[in-house]
């Protein structure tokens, strides 16, 4: 198992380096410098600014310097907010986004997993159709549509829940978490249904029945483990999706998280901020992918054994 983790970690490193490199050069070759937008900047001020941000050096040198900073965990200063570093901005936004993402994933796993398992127990009956139709709606109703609609219905018409903010008024975390989690709940519902159906049709489930075990024990003891492996493997991609989805949800509900910073940075052409956030989020996603891969492999004794030998 440790070897498996080691191999995967080693594989993740080039991916992260590739991400950083591609992002860095993409941002550098972008048409229009970061200070072109400011009309009234005097040449000497601009030169001073460029020197401060190392823009006067050759590109490879900039790259080397940036990688050096990165290795020390320094993402550099922000272009748009002079005096503030990207690290500070990320540190400010991260807790909010992390909390939102966590709730969204919880919503997705608990509601989605439950719906999928319930549906798989009686395929092609109402018990299957109802949760699966709900899942279909979840898939076809993207967060940027569901968010405003929930906001309109529960926030504005019914006035049950607050329409914006994060942690200011009780209950203001409910709508964003549901909005962000719903799509993934839907995917997980479909995945876990398919996974459970596959497992419940296996011969060893028949063996368990022949032993005389009650149905719930068969499902829980013999079914869940195999049936949930695809869901666990999906957690990585789901995490990436939730992070990207937070761009939208944080914009809709005006939540001061990383996602909103990112979108603002994109519009402001705050290059160091974009670069820093991309690097940060990408690393996070790669690591999370790794984690869900390892978890899924660990759940399969055959894979676990394969990598157990040193």
């Amino acid at each position: 198992m440790w070897r498996f983790i080691g191999i995967r970690l080693l594989q993740a490193i080039p991916v992260i380096i590739a991400v950083v490199t591609v992002t860095f050069f993409l941002v550098r070759v972008a048409p229009g410098g970061p200070f072109d937008g400011e009309k009234a900047v005097m040449p000497e001020v601009k030169a001073a600014l460029e020197a401060q941000y190392r823009l006067d050096q050759p590109m490879l040198q900039q790259y080397a310097a940036y990688m050096g900073d990165l290795a020390r965990g320094d993402l550099g200063p922000s272009f748009k907010y002079p005096g503030r570093s990207v690290n500070e901005l990320i540190a400010a936004g991260l807790p909010v986004t992390a909390e939102l993402g966590l709730y969204a994933l919880l919503v997705a796993v608990i509601i989605g997993g439950l719906a999928g398992v319930i549906a798989s127990l009686k395929p092609n009956t109402a018990q299957d159709y109802i949760p699966m139709s709900a899942a279909m709606i979840g898939i076809c109703m993207p967060s940027f549509l569901l968010g405003p609609i929930l906001l309109l219905v529960f926030g504005i018409y019914l006035e049950w829940l607050p329409v914006s903010g994060w942690g200011d008024i009780p209950g203001d975390k409910i709508l964003p978490a549901i909005t962000l989690g719903s799509t993934y709940a839907a995917y997980i519902a479909r995945l876990s249904r398919a996974g459970m159906l596959e497992v419940l049709n296996q011969d060893y489930i028949r063996t368990a029945r022949a032993k005389g075990l009650p149905e719930w024990q068969i499902v829980v003891k013999h079914g869940l483990r195999g049936g949930m492996i695809p869901v666990v493997a999906f957690l990585g991609p789901a995490f990436a999706g939730v992070l990207a989805g937070s761009f939208v949800v944080e914009t809709i509900f005006q939540i001061p998280g990383l996602g909103r910073f990112y979108v603002q940075a994109a519009f402001n052409r705050d290059y160091t901020m974009i670069l820093g956030t991309t690097v940060f989020l990408s690393t996070l996603i790669v690591l999370f992918n790794l984690l869900s891969d390892i978890l899924a492999a660990w759940m399969n004794p055959r894979l676990r054994a394969q990598f157990g030998k040193r």
Partner: peptide, 20 residues
Amino acid sequence: DILYALPFMIFIVLLMVVFG
């Protein structure tokens, strides 16, 4: 596999920002 591991959603956003 390597491309799969890349966080593409973020990349597309970046691409659209950079290249219009």
